[in-house]
């Protein structure tokens, strides 16, 4: 047994095993291992992207496969960029993304800051706060329609209780002015915990000894917050903004469940709008151009942002 082992070991050390696979070089073996991944990436991401760009230059309709397809050049893009409905959807999306980010970062960071103070039961509080995030967006959308009910909704009752207004005098979902805020509130309720968790990771990454040094250097709590806590947690905060920003740019499920894009189309975000064009009106070529525009927008914004994020990290 020992002899055998020694014999095998010495045989192995004489010849590197990677090169031994039927005369293939290391590089070839490497390619074989990554090939499935590359193939999948091409099949699922790159090919559809290219196909979409191709379709966006045509008047193709997916529900009329027999109809003749003709090239229309950039006409789809032209029409989209001059379509007031689409600009409305863009505005609704911007309103939604900006306000959810502002609220989630402010509330999430504050919660993380409080939870990070060493007090009894902060683990329990973390768990409780994180609960909404674990629910399905469809479920959340659904039960918030009940909370927003003017007659029996808890939300309306609560607002009424605080402000003295009549709970049934307003409808968060039915009112053109309130509906955009209704979706902001629900998304904030659901995803602030996520921002809090990331901020908490950032705050926990700052060692106590740094604060002790600052304490000895006579920095007030206020100054410690601005010169130590914020700069050191900033990369985490920016990461949270990136995640939430991209997620909310393509928000669909929650809002569809909650308002279905209404009333009218005030909460019809771009992704809902896009889905209508593509799969209700079946204007496939037009919708493809729409998708490309959205893709370029998100991709461009995210790239600029990631550059900034890297700069902050390097500091």
């Amino acid at each position: 047994m020992t002899d055998e082992t020694t014999a095998r070991t010495s045989a192995a050390s004489r010849r590197p095993p990677a090169r031994a696979i039927k005369g293939l070089s290391d590089r070839a073996v490497g390619w074989i291992f990554v090939a499935p991944t590359i193939f999948l990436l091409l099949a699922i991401n790159i090919f559809p992207l290219i196909w979409t760009i191709r379709l966006s230059l045509t008047n193709y309709r997916a529900n009329r496969t027999t109809a003749e397809v003709s090239w229309v050049g950039l006409r789809n893009y032209e029409r989209i960029l001059t379509d007031p409905d689409i600009w409305n959807a863009m505005q609704a999306t911007a309103h939604f993304v900006i306000w959810t980010l502002v609220l989630q970062v402010l509330i999430g960071f504050t919660l993380a800051y409080l939870i990070n103070k060493k007090f009894k039961g902060n683990d329990l509080w973390t768990t409780i706060i994180v609960l909404p995030m674990m629910l399905s967006p469809a479920v959340v959308g659904n039960f918030w329609t009940f909370l927003y009910q003017p007659q029996i909704g808890l939300f309306n009752y609560f607002v009424g209780f605080l402000t003295g207004a009549d709970p049934s005098s307003f409808s968060m979902i039915g009112d053109v002015a309130l509906a955009p805020w209704a979706i902001v509130i629900v998304d904030t309720w659901m995803w602030t915990p996520f921002v809090m968790l990331i901020c908490l990771a950032g705050l926990r990454s700052i060692p106590d000894s740094i604060y002790e040094a600052a304490e000895c250097d006579r920095a007030s709590k206020w100054r410690q917050f601005w010169t130590i806590t914020i700069p050191m947690a900033l990369p985490f905060l920016m990461l949270a903004v990136l995640f939430r920003g991209i997620e909310n740019f393509k928000m669909f499920d929650l809002v569809v469940q909650l308002t279905g894009g209404g009333p009218g189309s005030v909460t019809e975000l771009t992704s809902i709008n896009l889905k209508r064009e593509a799969f209700e009106k079946w204007r496939t070529g037009y919708a493809s151009a729409y998708a490309v525009i959205l893709f370029v927008t998100v991709f461009g914004l995210a790239s600029i942002y990631v550059k900034a994020l890297n700069k902050v990290k390097e500091r």
């Binding site: 060692p207 000894s209 740094i210 002790e212 040094a213 600052a214 010169t227 130590i228 700069p231 050191m232 500091r315």
Partner: peptide
């Protein structure tokens, strides 16, 4: 002066 330095890393 701290044993583990405790410089402000950023």
């Amino acid at each position: 002066v701290f044993q583990q330095y405790s410089l402000y890393p950023h």
